[in-house]
Computed example of a mutant assay.
Amino acid sequence: MKLLQLHTNLNASFAGDVPLYVYTVETEKQPPITRLNGFSAKQLFFTIAGGGEFRLLGQDNWDILMPDRLLYIPGGLPHEYVPKGREPWLTGYVTFVEKEDG
């Protein structure tokens, strides 16, 4: 599978009644990540191929993230995720921020 080479921080200055705006969009071969303070935006995180594990910091149990699975991660939630298995863990995500009046 060929990955889209896309990473962008979109401009939040738009008019309209949409209560949120997209901050980043990306696909990548996922490395292990620990976010001690969480991420600054809300995330929709999905597995394209391979698999990984996710957990909230401070918990012992890991959730398995297999292909075609979508995970919502609130902004500011401390967490970590790591690849699992021999196959590369290919992921994609969309991060978004609510408008102040959203």
Score class of each variant (00 low, 15 high):
Gln59Thr: 15
Ile73Val: 14
Gln59Val: 06
Ser40Met: 03
Leu56Arg: 11
Leu56Met: 04
Thr47Val: 15
Gly51Ala: 13
Leu57Thr: 04
Glu80Gln: 09
Leu36Glu: 09
Pro74Trp: 07
Leu77Ser: 00
Ala41Gln: 08
Ser40Asp: 08
Ser40Gln: 05
Ile64Phe: 04
Pro74Tyr: 03
Trp62Tyr: 09
Gly58Cys: 05
Gly76Gln: 03
Leu77Cys: 01
Asp60Ser: 14
Gly51Phe: 02
Arg69Ile: 10
Asp68Met: 13
Phe39Arg: 04
Gln43Lys: 12
Phe39Tyr: 15
Leu57Ile: 10
Lys84His: 09
Val82Trp: 07
Ile73Ala: 03
Gly50Thr: 09
Leu71Met: 13
Phe39Met: 02
Pro83Ser: 01
Arg69Thr: 15
Gln43Asn: 09
Ile64Tyr: 11
Leu44Glu: 04
Met66His: 11
Pro67Gly: 10
Gly75Lys: 12
Asn61Lys: 14
Arg86Gly: 14
Pro74Gly: 01
Arg55Leu: 04
Pro78Gln: 01
Thr47Met: 05
Asp68Thr: 15
Ser40Trp: 03
Asn37Leu: 06
Tyr72Gly: 00
Gly38Cys: 04
Tyr72Ser: 02
Arg86Val: 12
Asp63Thr: 13
Val82Cys: 10
Leu71Gly: 04
Glu80Asp: 02
Asn37Ile: 02
Lys42Asn: 06
Gly76Tyr: 06
Trp62Pro: 03
Arg69Leu: 10
Leu56His: 02
Leu56Glu: 12
Leu77Pro: 00
Glu87Arg: 13
Gly58Leu: 12
Gly58Ala: 13
Leu44Pro: 07
Lys42Phe: 07
Ser40Arg: 07
Asp63Glu: 15
Asp63Trp: 04
Leu70Ser: 12
Asp63Ser: 13
Asp68Gly: 07
Gln59Met: 13
Leu70His: 07
Arg69Gly: 07
Phe54Asp: 09
Asn37Glu: 09
Leu65Tyr: 08
Leu77Arg: 00
Gly50His: 08
Phe54Ser: 06
Gly75Arg: 08
Leu65Phe: 11
Tyr81Ala: 09
Leu71Val: 08
Ala49Thr: 12
Gly50Asp: 12
Leu57Pro: 06
Arg55Val: 04
Glu80Leu: 05
Tyr72Lys: 06
Glu53Val: 04
Thr47Tyr: 11
Gln43His: 13
Arg55Lys: 14
Ile64Arg: 11
Trp62Phe: 11
Gly50Ile: 05
Phe45Gln: 10
Arg69Phe: 06
Pro83Cys: 06
Phe54Pro: 08
Asn37Met: 08
Asp68Phe: 12
Pro67Gln: 11
Pro74Thr: 01
Gly58Val: 13
Leu71Trp: 04
Asp60Pro: 03
Gln43Leu: 15
Glu53Leu: 03
Glu53Tyr: 00
Trp62Val: 08
Pro74Val: 01
Gly85Val: 10
Glu53Lys: 04
Phe46Gly: 07
Gly52Trp: 10
Pro83Ala: 07
Leu56Tyr: 07
Gly85Ser: 13
Leu70Asn: 10
Gly51Asp: 07
Phe54Gln: 04
Gln59Trp: 02
Ala49His: 08
Met66Glu: 15
Tyr81Cys: 11
Gln59Glu: 15
Asp60Met: 08
Arg69Cys: 11
Gly38Tyr: 01
Leu44Gly: 09
Leu65Gln: 12
Trp62Cys: 01
Tyr72Cys: 03
